[in-house]
Design a protein around this nucleic acid. Sequence first.
DNA 1: TGACATAATTTTGAATGCAAAATTAAATAT
DNA 2: ATATTTAATTTTGCATTCAAAATTATGTCA
Lengths: 225, 225
Amino acid sequence: MNITMDEAIVRRSLHDELVERLQRLIIEGELTPGEKVPEKELCERYNVSRTPMREALKVLASEGLVTLTPNRGSSVTAVTVDDLEEVFPVMGALEALSGELACEKITDVEIAAISKSHHEMIGHYKAKRLPEYFAANEAIHTAILKAARNDTLAAQHRMLSARVRRARYLANMTRERWEKAVAEHEDILAALEARDGRKLGIILKHHLRNKLETVSEWLKANDRG
Amino acid sequence: MNITMDEAIVRRSLHDELVERLQRLIIEGELTPGEKVPEKELCERYNVSRTPMREALKVLASEGLVTLTPNRGSSVTAVTVDDLEEVFPVMGALEALSGELACEKITDVEIAAISKSHHEMIGHYKAKRLPEYFAANEAIHTAILKAARNDTLAAQHRMLSARVRRARYLANMTRERWEKAVAEHEDILAALEARDGRKLGIILKHHLRNKLETVSEWLKANDRG
DNA sequence: TGACATAATTTTGAATGCAAAATTAAATAT
DNA sequence: ATATTTAATTTTGCATTCAAAATTATGTCA
């Protein structure tokens, strides 16, 4: 066998592991939208048989990352502007809810941690370190979601965010947008510290809408879909 | 073979068909919460092999209807009060959004259809025909969701509603609650006809909260969770 | 008899095998 | 040469098989 085994899987159920790995491949763009999923190739790469691979693909399909066409396999779902305009309102509703719930339940310790991430993020912004900025940003949103203490909410959000994260990776922000996003984050932290759930919900929804605009402008410019 | 074949499947992909059938089994309570899913039995019943059955179970697991435990198979996820209290806020947010979007996009024809269902529902209420009432009720909510023109939203809602519908089946309403629900439906129709999205969103969220109370009271009374 | 160990059985997870469908390649006719 | 069959190949969906893990049954000894 002439296969590189260095990516072979060891722990827990294969299909579960595969779901995660394929998700990453799609989100990070190694598998590009519209492309047919090379089932056989992936099986060889991860050194698994088709059974767990196909199980994983079924799960990804139910999450909307992959599209199954009867008798002709699976392809990576394309991210179109239309698609994003569907997903974002739903995510917006979920984020708003997460903000409201978080304010009810968040602890001082958690707020402190978010505040820390926030200031780190500002530092990365000022130094124009985009990847680190993104990481801190994501940490904040994840922390808010976690503070909402609702696994169902978190799961739904995670599913949708997988569908758009890919797009977010590609679209880079203009100077003004970035500035605006940072300003919004100041409001987010303030609302959180004031435990003003309604306000936080509204801000998060707006914040997301701005992201949508960034991304969908980019998509329209670099049309492919 | 000593198996009744009358439930055997013919059309489209087996796993897809199975997802639907198992969902029904769970929602309608033939498979009860906590119970281990009798994989082999179900395979025989539907006359399929374990491969598509397991694919279907993986999908249901990602939707939260069943729980997979490594090396010891799948069991029907139990609906506890805690669980419901997680799911309902999320559904509430989605329903509110569906109300808002529906008001923006709904056609006069669709409103007329909903109005018709509404009046039928009132008829069933007055005649105390509970099952027919439920059916008309569901038709209305489905129509609103459809009018929102957002497949992502519909899909998310459908997933969550599967998790609670089962509970709704069991819990029957008191006279006052029923009356209240009908009154709320008058408001729903009115907001829809006025195309007042914000208002409809709020009403739908309240409406759902009342449902939660009905169901969770029942669950607490008949505790099994 | 009851606690523990050991063997038989069942269940589970995943690989392999096989037939039908789809795709590609080759061949024939126009 | 181009369109149209026809044949070969690949891919897909599902059944079957197999090994490992878990469960149950049986046996042993205090």
